[in-house]
Design a protein around this nucleic acid. Structure first.
Lengths: 193, 193
DNA sequence: ACCTGAACACCGTTCAAGT
DNA sequence: ACCTGAACACCGTTCAAGT
């Protein structure tokens, strides 16, 4: 690292990787472009080439977060057995686990200032997540494990419930060790309605 | 304001009031202690007497937010008719309305860094909200409008659902005009399970 | 195409000193 | 008890200049 070349080569990726770590350890407020540049061994103005401003970096983090959340929830569903209630529980557990391990990232992903049409990229990045949950619901309905009804609205309601549980857990309002019980309650709520 | 006395007199209250306004208009990131001091006509070091640091001000805002949310949800329940489903819907609508109008404040209230036992005052401030929801659930259960089961767990699940809906709405993931339908769906989910 | 270095206008926080 | 003013160490952002 003493004789680093003038061009970093992977500065954007390096900044993002380091930012994810800082975000996990100290929250979004601990993220400083100057500090990231320092840790990448680059001048404080160098990140500007890759991120127009600090918000652009946060946007990129949120975007990557949605992609990974979609992957993890999808994988959890696939890895679960064939029982629909079990699959729903696996999806919910994966969602809450992600939120617990990356609480600050989750806050970025659902920040109000990133609302609606603010970022087409962010909306697009969250498609796999919503698709995975939507597919699960549609199939569970066909199998008779979930009540009929507009699958779109049911999908939105399920994601809302998972997101709410995640928020209560990460904000410390669910007693330790009660998380799984709360998730199980939520799944029962949907399957028995 | 030209000949303001040396002692402001109500500096703490003035800072909080102005901070609430800034929070609503520009989010937590727009909150600057120096700027608040300026708007109060006081030196930049004066707020220190009332708030140990910036985080202490944010904590106080979150605390006041929980008190007000508890009041508004409680009032909505009281103002609703005697029908339990209608009362649940009124509580949910009040919760989401609060979150919509004060999205940045809501984020402060449920921030992960304010977790668990971090602030006894914050926990205490949220008691009326949880009590109002808990009482509603207990009474609806006794009236047969909600299924039996541990009311504590049901209370947590209901708050989680409301919080999740609020987050999806403020983060722009619920299509405009679909909010009421989502709230109605949530209430049906609880009453028919 | 990518990065540097200096400059600007802001912060939060601290602390001796004033009223 | 409450507030001021100067000081310190940080920021994000901009821009001419370097490679």
């Amino acid at each position: 690292m003493a004789d680093r070349p003038y061009h970093h080569g992977r500065l954007r990726a390096a900044l993002l990787a380091e930012a994810e770590r800082t975000l996990r350890e100290g929250g979004a407020e601990a993220l400083s472009l100057r500090d990231l540049a320092r840790q990448a061994g680059v001048s404080h103005a160098a990140p500007r080439r890759h991120f127009a401003d600090r918000q652009a970096l946060l946007d990129a983090l949120a975007e990557a977060g949605f992609v990974r959340l979609g992957e993890e929830v999808g994988a959890a569903i696939d890895d679960a057995g064939e029982d629909w209630e079990e699959r729903l529980r696996a999806a919910a557990a994966a969602y809450v686990r992600f939120a617990t391990q990356d609480a600050a990232l989750m806050e970025l992903m659902f920040a109000a200032k990133n609302a609606a049409g603010r970022s087409a990229a962010l909306r697009e990045a969250s498609v796999p997540l919503f698709t995975a949950v939507g597919d699960l619901i549609g199939q569970a309905q066909q199998a008779g494990a979930l009540p009929r009804g507009d699958p779109w609205r049911l999908r939105l309601l399920l994601v809302a419930t998972l997101q709410g549980i995640a928020t209560l857990v990460t904000s410390g309002r669910v007693p330790a060790g009660q998380t799984d019980a709360l998730i199980a309650d939520a799944v029962v709520l949907f399957t028995r309605s």
